[in-house]
C-alpha cells in the first residue's frame, strides 16, 4: 500500500484548527494528530492547545553552551596566566580571579549564544531541502496542514479538508 502526503491550505487559523480537531475526533486509522505539521505565516499563540504539547529542547543546548563557556573561560585564562610565571606579577596573584570573572562572563554568553544558534539550526530542521508540497502562500497569509496518510485514508482526509473550506489541496505520493 502506497503512502501519500497531503497538504490542505486554509485561509485562516480557525478553519485549520477546526480541521485538526476533526482529525483528532474522527480517529482515522493510522492518522494521528502527532503526525500533523502545521505551516503558518505567524506562530499562533494557542497552537499547543490544538496540536498538543510538543517538547522543545533548545534550552538544554544553551545551558550546555553556557557551562562550557564559563569553564573553558576559566581554564583558558588560568592556563594562559600560569604559563608566564616568569613575568613579574608585582605581588598580584598569578590567576587574577576578579578580572577573569569579566572574561568568563563574556565567554559564557558567547558560547551559550552560539550553542543555541547551532542547536536551533539542527532542531528546527533548517538547512534542509524544503518539502516539495511547500506553498508560497504560507509565507503570505494562508495556513497549511501537512499530513502523511495511507492510500485508504487519502480521500477521507481530503474530504475533511474540503469540509473546512480548504482553499487548495495538494498531494504527493511518498516513494
Amino acid at each position: 500500500m502506497s503512502k501519500h502526503c497531503v497538504m490542505g491550505l486554509f485561509s485562516d487559523f480557525d478553519e485549520a484548527f477546526a480541521a485538526i480537531s476533526d482529525i483528532r475526533k474522527t480517529k482515522i486509522p493510522g492518522v494521528s494528530v502527532d503526525d500533523v505539521t502545521l505551516k503558518s505565516p505567524i506562530e499562533h499563540p494557542e497552537i499547543e492547545e490544538v496540536l498538543g504539547e510538543r517538547p522543545v529542547h533548545l534550552q538544554k543546548f544553551t545551558l550546555f553552551g553556557a557551562i562550557f563557556g564559563v569553564t573553558f573561560g576559566f581554564f583558558f585564562l588560568a592556563a594562559a596566566q600560569a604559563s608566564f610565571l616568569v613575568q613579574p606579577q608585582g605581588g598580584k596573584p598569578v590567576v587574577a580571579l576578579p578580572s577573569n570573572f569579566v572574561l568568563m562572563y563574556e565567554m559564557l554568553i558567547f558560547f551559550a549564544v552560539w550553542g543555541t544558534f547551532l542547536a536551533f539550526l539542527f532542531l528546527s530542521g533548517l538547512l534542509r531541502k524544503r518539502h516539495s508540497l511547500y506553498s508560497e502562500n504560507v509565507s503570505l497569509d494562508q495556513v497549511g496542514i501537512l499530513i502523511d496518510v495511507d492510500d485508504s485514508n487519502l480521500e477521507r482526509v481530503k474530504d475533511l479538508f474540503k469540509q473546512h473550506k480548504a482553499v487548495e489541496i495538494r498531494e504527493e505520493e511518498i516513494r
Binding site: 502545521l38 505551516k39 506562530e43 510538543r54 522543545v56 533548545l58 544558534f117 530542521g125
Partner: peptide, 29 residues
C-alpha cells in the same frame, strides 16, 4: 530552508527569547 512549520516556530520562539535574555546583560556588560 524556512518553511514556517510548527516545529520551526516553536524553536524560533524559544531561541528569540533566549537570545533576548542573553543580549540584555551582554549589552550592560
Amino acid at each position: 530552508g524556512w518553511s514556517g512549520n510548527d516545529r520551526q516556530w516553536r524553536n524560533f520562539r524559544k531561541i528569540y527569547l533566549l537570545m533576548a535574555c542573553f543580549l540584555i546583560p551582554l549589552a550592560v556588560s
